[in-house]
């Protein structure tokens, strides 16, 4: 990690624009940052803010491992430039638990063993939280379809659907 919140100014020596000030609310805390115009939200979180919960599986919008919530909407942080988000509120997987209590989706993921290696998991969980807010999914097939932007190479899909369904139905943790 860099000791300061400003990158050593990268660039190609051609006098391209330098860092741009932005204000972001990240997991409820307002952050005033200077970011290079090419820095993605994902790299900002992982490399500068030490919020490594959001994962990088492809950096191309193909896997969903980097899914975070921007103003409650699920987005791929690898496809989002940080400077586009001035004034926005970002919730990452680190910001879901409240007062030491897991978010119901997090708890359901543990209960249903909806992950193995855990690398796709923060993205799956943020995506599921976003999905529940959208209120579009009703059936298991709809959950499957609307969670299909989040790949899981460990193949935990059956359990992911069960976890999301449990929270959707409000059926408690069933421990």
């Amino acid at each position: 990690m860099q000791a300061t919140e400003t990158d050593p100014r990268p660039g190609n020596g051609t006098g391209e624009p330098g860092p741009i000030p932005v204000v972001l609310t990240i997991n409820g805390t307002e952050r005033r940052l200077e970011v290079e115009p090419w820095t993605t939200l994902l790299d900002l979180l992982r490399e500068r803010l030490d919020l490594t919960g959001s994962k990088k599986g492809c950096d191309h919008g193909q896997c969903g491992a980097c899914t975070v919530l921007v103003d409650d909407r699920r987005v791929n942080a690898c496809l989002t430039l940080a400077v586009m988000l001035d004034g926005a509120s970002v919730t990452t997987v680190e910001g879901l638990a409240q007062d030491g209590q897991l978010h119901p989706v997090q708890d359901a993921f543990v209960e249903h063993d909806a992950f193995q290696c855990g690398y796709c998991t923060p993205g799956q969980i943020c995506s599921a939280v976003g999905l529940l807010k959208e209120g579009r999914a009703r059936s298991d097939d709809e959950i499957r379809e609307l969670m299909s932007g989040n790949l899981c190479r460990c193949g935990a899909y059956v359990n992911i659907v069960a976890a999301v369904r449990q929270v959707m139905d409000g059926t408690g943790a069933g421990r």
């Binding site: 997987v93 993921f109 543990v110 063993d113 992950f115």
Partner: peptide, 12 residues
Amino acid sequence: RRIDGVSKVTGQ
């Protein structure tokens, strides 16, 4: 339940 489950679902 996985004993490392909480660390995985909270991004730790």
